[in-house]
Computed example of a mutant assay.
Amino acid sequence: MSLPRLRLSEEWQTFWLAISFLTRLPVLINIDYSPRLMSNSSTYFPLVGLLLGIIYAAAYSVLEIMFSPLVAVLLVMVLHLWLTGAFHEDGLADSLDGLGGGYTLEDRLRIMKDSQIGTYGVIALVMALLLKAALLVESQVTWLALLIAPCISRLTPLLLMRWLPYITGKKTSKTGSVANAFPTERLLPAVLFTVLVIALGSFWLQALAPLALAATLGVALIWGSYLKRQLGGHTGDSLGACVVFSELVLLAGLV
């Protein structure tokens, strides 16, 4: 196989690896897994987010014909939790449990790795879901919010991965290959793709660009600064949490 075709085949596998990592969607190809491929798959997080957004927006367009906006939004959120396995929401709950209940670095990391959810995690998860539902219902462009928010919010963890070192309380981690060695040169394509989505979305909402900047760079700076003080770096759970935060900031701006 020629070098260009080999590289194209590798990128195709990398894209599907990103889908398998972030969602429960079926993988339609065979993937020659490697830690490098897993690390490179982060490049496609915003694209996977856009694919999810297309599903959510399409589902909402059908559901709002049959149900009230609130019911339609809640059903789409159920679909989201099922398609993603509540991946990022789990990270939010674990992060707030650890950061809220731990007094030392070791305690915080240990609590984050605990499979049981605590008071801080429950409160954070319930409030985040309630707020997301309320913001989507209040939005004048709910379909657009559902379409672009998953894409834009999944750029934020890439920014955090390039800014902060990866830390973990265990020698092995399911997110380690993604979070620990994301190559700098692969950040630019993800940024450019997200900017393109923002530019297209601006045809419907002119204020989208500054809102997207606040939801990505703003959240990365604020959440990242807090993580740096509390942990000295980021964890896989904290990356999931920043996706939820980015979505909420963007949705609040859209309202």
Rank of each mutant, 00 (worst) to 15 (best):
S177F: 14
L208I: 08
G169R: 08
N180H: 02
A181C: 10
A179V: 01
G169L: 07
G201Q: 00
F182D: 07
L208Q: 08
R186Q: 08
L196V: 10
S173W: 13
G176L: 08
G201D: 00
V195D: 03
L192S: 06
W204G: 02
S173D: 11
L188N: 05
L211I: 08
K171Q: 12
W204Q: 03
F193C: 10
L200F: 04
A212F: 13
N180P: 00
L188Q: 07
L200V: 01
P183N: 12
T172R: 14
A190T: 06
G169V: 04
G176M: 13
I198R: 01
T175K: 06
W204C: 02
V178K: 06
K171I: 09
L211R: 09
A207S: 08
A179R: 02
V197P: 00
A190M: 03
L187F: 04
S173T: 09
S173E: 07
L208A: 09
A199D: 05
L213H: 10
A181G: 11
S202W: 01
P189M: 10
P210W: 12
S177I: 01
K170L: 15
S177P: 08
E185G: 09
A212C: 08
K171T: 09
L208E: 07
F203S: 02
T184K: 09
L192I: 06
L205F: 02
L200S: 00
T172C: 13
P210I: 14
L187P: 08
F203P: 00
S177H: 10
G201S: 02
N180A: 03
A214R: 07
T168K: 11
L208W: 04
F182S: 13
L196H: 06
V191C: 10
I198V: 03
R186P: 13
R186H: 15
L208F: 02
L192T: 04
V191L: 12
K174R: 15
A199H: 00
S177N: 15
P189K: 06
L205R: 03
S173R: 12
R186F: 15
A190P: 01
A181H: 10
N180C: 01
N180R: 10
K174V: 14
K170M: 14
L196N: 07
V197M: 00
E185V: 13
F182M: 14
P210D: 13
R186W: 10
L213P: 05
